[in-house]
């Protein structure tokens, strides 16, 4: 098993009840998992916990046989080697897309960085936009840069937080297809959260449904199609 979450509990400081309860997930390498749920159900919190941005009060997370969180261990987000695409992309506005994409590359020569940049630009299809700043790109293009930035350091897992929520409805179908192609090409294990069933059906191989901080269902996308 590539990633394991065991018996995870989380509560925000100002919350009276647990925001996530008894979360158990096992993920194989290369799987694309869609986490589906209503707003406020705890799905984004789950991503933030995996990324190390929030700390649960109980549970265990293992990625590639390495414990990144348990009662005694907490690996800081910058040392986890995880990629994340934020809901509003969080591209650094003072850096052009080249610098945004290569930001997370450590211990690489200039030449190696250039090669990775070229590969990423190729992967997300933004060759003509090198050197541009985030504000000069459309929403869809910004999203691709965010994906390229997250993939460039070759993360163990890619996390996507509501990846299509900021896009116009007429763009969504195309971008979902593009994203699927990028994820398939990169072969990265991916967890993405959404409240939109269409996103899950078009992208993921497995679906986890969360409601009120608890996993209600966990099944393949084929089964979900049958249910619908």
């Amino acid at each position: 098993m590539y990633m394991k979450i065991n018996d995870l509990y989380f509560k925000y400081e100002n919350s009276a009840v647990d925001n996530l309860k008894n979360i158990n997930i096992e993920i194989d390498k290369g799987e694309i998992i869609g986490v589906l749920g209503e707003s406020g159900c705890g799905k984004s919190t789950l991503l933030r916990i995996i990324a190390g941005l929030e700390i649960p009060y109980k549970g265990k997370i293992i990625i590639n046989d390495k414990i990144i969180f348990n009662k005694k261990i907490f690996i800081e987000p910058e040392k986890r080697g995880i990629g994340m695409v934020f809901q509003d992309y969080a591209l650094f506005p003072h850096m052009n897309i080249d610098k945004n994409i290569t930001f997370g590359l450590k211990n690489f020569s200039r030449k190696e960085k250039r090669e990775i940049l070229d590969n990423m630009i190729e992967l997300v299809g933004l060759k003509d936009h090198l050197g541009k700043y985030p504000y000069q790109l459309s929403g869809g293009q910004q999203q691709r840069v965010a994906v390229a930035r997250a993939l460039a350091p070759n993360p163990s897992i890619l996390l996507l937080d509501e990846p299509f929520s900021n896009l116009d409805s007429h763009l969504k179908d195309q971008i979902r297809m593009d994203m699927k192609e990028i994820l398939n090409k990169s072969k990265t294990t991916c967890i993405f959260v959404t409240h939109d069933k269409e996103d899950v059906l078009s992208l993921s191989s497995r679906i986890i449904i969360i409601s009120d901080g608890v996993i209600k269902d966990d099944y393949s996308v084929e089964k979900m199609v049958d249910i619908i």
Binding site: L53, E78, K79, I82, M84, D88, F92, F103
Partner: peptide, 27 residues
């Protein structure tokens, strides 16, 4: 905090994030 968090996830510690992200954005 989103830019700070993005920088942390991309492997930069607090001090590097402060100089590379926060200060230029707080110009």
């Amino acid at each position: 905090k989103k830019f700070y968090e993005a920088s942390k996830i991309l492997g930069k510690n607090d001090v590097k994030t402060f100089f590379l992200i926060d200060i230029p954005m707080l110009k």
